[in-house]
Design a protein around this nucleic acid. Structure first.
Length: 627
RNA sequence: GCGGGUGUAGCUCAAUUGGAUAGAGCAUCGGUCUACGAAACCGAAGGUUGCAGGUUCGAAUCCUGCCACCCGCGCCA
């Protein structure tokens, strides 16, 4: 199951489609044509390796294909580059390219071509093309467990999943968000059992109470086998051993009783089912609060818990068993893989099912009934091995294809852990739980304080707004800061949870982007003109650089969707805001006397603002018009 | 022990997936507003990309071997 981390530009040249405005695509097509002219048709489909230049003095784009081809054909790369330049048709698009270094082809676009490309993408879609073969995408996100408090780990799964959903929807896919709720199994039964024995009415409980009961239940069920063995070996004395034996006995009794509760629940006992549903409601109420604060699009119908798959488990086993895809091993049923020792258990020796069985049932429903062509699991990185096993087992079972024959792409975007200041995973135990809701409230409060403070300045554009308006902005700023801090770096990495840095408002932050956007809206508002229909003229380096950055938007969205790395969009937006700020510093807009320059800049500014807002929206971050 | 991940400036992170002189932000120092919004901009300083080899025109990126930290590894979810 190889994740397609690369966005293949090469495919574009051969699909007949309307000529794209995107200079990158036009360059790719032109150089592919040139490669065929110089080297023959057998080189059709060669990726011309066109990249945006890292340094402006090298031009706008570079083509790096000559070095690779030179090596393959045992030819001088520079000679090959010269031949490609002679063959390539860049009429109306670029100046004659130049060869540099070992065989780089440096390309500088015509100023008119850049301006035209910008004007062409001035549409509702902002130049972002839909995927050619859209499909149904299931995103497994959030992953709340019933009776457990949401903590910062859920923040990641929720906002990363939400970003994927927004991005893939933008490209035309039918996205189904799924909150794979942990609402079944022994842990839940233990909580129910403990509530019963303590004589508590679940309706009276808050999630905080429930979370405490959950931890109590976990502790009660935990038998210290290792401790007992060690104690016996060391001969620590009869009292200690007896104590441990009692503890172990109590633990197994507790588990047994919880197991019975599970059986009763499973049989549909109305009282128990009512209590179970109450626990789910309490959990979901708290979750909805956090989801609402985050502005994440996750609706009640997106909750599909493990209990949903529960009666589908025997059929999963049956599928594997009847096709001899699993074997019995020490009484358990396991799926084996040719390339590794570790098997996947899908049935316990006592006949019970496991976590993996539920995941396989979900895979089956998603691929065979929902007909998803892509399933994304936004679950933390510790479950890498688990999902590798699940995906490989799915392939063995034949669930890597939908019933109508489309390939199903499974990917696990295992994100890193959120660590505490001690660099240890920030976990919910040890009493000092940082709940997600408290973190979000804190972020919002800080955002609101900051916005109010700045509004006191009589020169501030927010001066005079009502407290209510200011607080709405403050909320967007606080939440935007938290989301950006998370989404702006590569998600495989662990990160240290630092609220001060997360809700910083200066430098490389969410509010930096929001601020650039607010400035843009302010310009357009003051001019009372968005430059609509104006001819764009790119005379200054700042205007040109800003325009070239804007043109990367389509490619950035597609590359992000293909790699499932939201930080690419974050990085693009930072570049865009930076280039806008430089432009803003150097190029007056409203104050410009020349009417055509003024309107050209207004249009450029307006497009910049819309791309910025579009990108922020794909990351789930608000773009307030004032702040 | 086996498998996986990470290692880049004092700190937090990038690097368009093998491209040109490794870039940002914090923090430090120094400049820009009687304001198209200073939540900004410009500049200075800061690097043996964990270590050692190898592959080639070219390596933070690929290969080999070490080191450090983290995670996972049959009947929990």
């Amino acid at each position: 199951m190889i994740l397609n981390r690369r966005f293949h530009l090469g495919a574009w040249g051969y699909t007949p489609r309307p000529m794209s405005a995107d200079p990158l695509q036009r360059l790719c097509a032109a150089f592919q044509q040139a490669i065929m002219l110089v080297l023959g048709d057998s080189f059709a489909g060669t990726d011309p390796v066109i990249r945006a230049s890292t340094k402006p003095e090298h031009g706008d784009f570079q083509c790096n294909v000559a070095m690779a081809l030179g090596k393959r054909l045992d030819r001088q790369p520079r000679d090959l580059a010269e031949e490609l330049i002679a063959a390539v048709d860049l009429t109306d698009l670029a100046l004659t390219p130049e060869v540099a270094g070992p065989g780089f082809i440096n390309i500088r676009l015509n100023p008119e071509a850049v301006a035209t490309a910008i004007m062409d993408m001035d549409t509702e879609s902002l130049g972002v093309q839909k995927d050619e073969a859209p499909g149904i995408v299931v995103i497994d996100m959030c992953g709340v467990n019933v009776s457990k408090q949401m903590h910062v780990g859920h923040l990641r799964s929720t906002i990363i999943g939400d970003a994927f959903a927004r991005i893939l929807e933008r490209l035309g896919h039918d996205v189904r968000r799924e909150n794979h709720l942990g609402d079944w199994g022994l842990p839940i039964a233990m909580v129910l059992h403990l509530i019963r024995t303590r004589g508590i009415d679940p309706v009276t409980l808050s999630l905080t109470d429930l979370d405490a009961i959950y931890r109590d239940a976990q502790a009660l069920a935990k038998a210290d086998h290792a401790g007992l063995v060690a104690a016996r070996a060391k001969n620590v004395g009869p009292h200690r051993i007896a104590e441990l034996e009692t503890q172990n006995e109590a633990a197994s009794e507790f588990r047994a009783a919880a197991g019975e509760t599970l059986v009763v629940l499973q049989s549909g006992d109305s009282d128990l089912v009512r209590d179970w549903k109450t626990l789910i409601e309490i959990t979901l109420d708290a979750m909805n609060e956090a989801v609402e604060l985050l502005g994440v699009q996750l609706n009640p119908e997106d909750n599909r818990g493990e209990s949903f798959y529960r009666e589908k488990l025997p059929a999963v086993l049956e599928w594997f068993e009847s096709r001899s895809l699993c074997h019995e091993d020490n009484g358990a049923m396991v799926v084996k893989f040719p390339d590794r020792k570790r098997p996947l258990l899908i049935r316990k020796s006592d006949g019970g099912f496991l976590y993996a069985t539920t995941d396989l049932a979900a895979v089956r429903v998603r691929s065979q009934e929902t007909m998803a062509t892509q399933c994304i699991y936004v679950v933390d990185a510790r479950q890498r091995d688990h999902f590798k096993d699940i995906f490989d087992a799915a392939e063995i079972a034949g669930w890597d294809q939908t019933p109508n024959g489309r390939h199903v792409l499974y990917s696990h975007t295992g994100f890193g852990s959120v660590l505490g200041p001690d660099r240890k995973p920030l976990k919910t135990r040890s009493g000092e739980t940082v709940t997600l809701a408290s973190l979000l409230h804190e972020a919002i409060t800080r955002g609101q304080i900051e916005v109010r403070r700045r509004a006191e300045d009589s020169n501030a554009p927010t001066h005079g707004l009502s407290t209510k308006e200011l607080d709405t902005i403050g909320r967007s700023v606080g939440i935007g800061a938290v989301k950006y801090a998370d989404l702006a770096n590569d998600l495989v990495r662990d990160y240290v949870f630092d609220l001060d840095r997360m809700v910083a408002f200066e430098g490389d932050t969410g509010p930096y982007l929001q601020y650039a956007h607010a400035r843009i809206r302010s310009i357009v508002r003051k001019a009372d003109d968005n430059g609509s229909g104006a001819t764009i003229i790119l005379d200054t380096p700042e205007e040109r650089q800003l325009a070239l950055t804007i043109l990367r938007w389509n490619d950035t969205v597609h590359a992000t969707a293909a790699s499932l790395e939201p930080h690419r969009i974050a990085g693009f937006l930072r570049d865009l805001a930076e280039n806008f700020n430089r432009f803003y510093q150097a190029c007056p807009v409203i104050k410009t006397a020349d009417e055509s320059t003024r309107r050209s800049r207004l249009r450029l500014v307006d497009i910049t603002g819309r791309v910025l807002a579009d990108g922020l929206n794909l990351l789930g971050i608000d773009a307030p018009p004032h702040m």
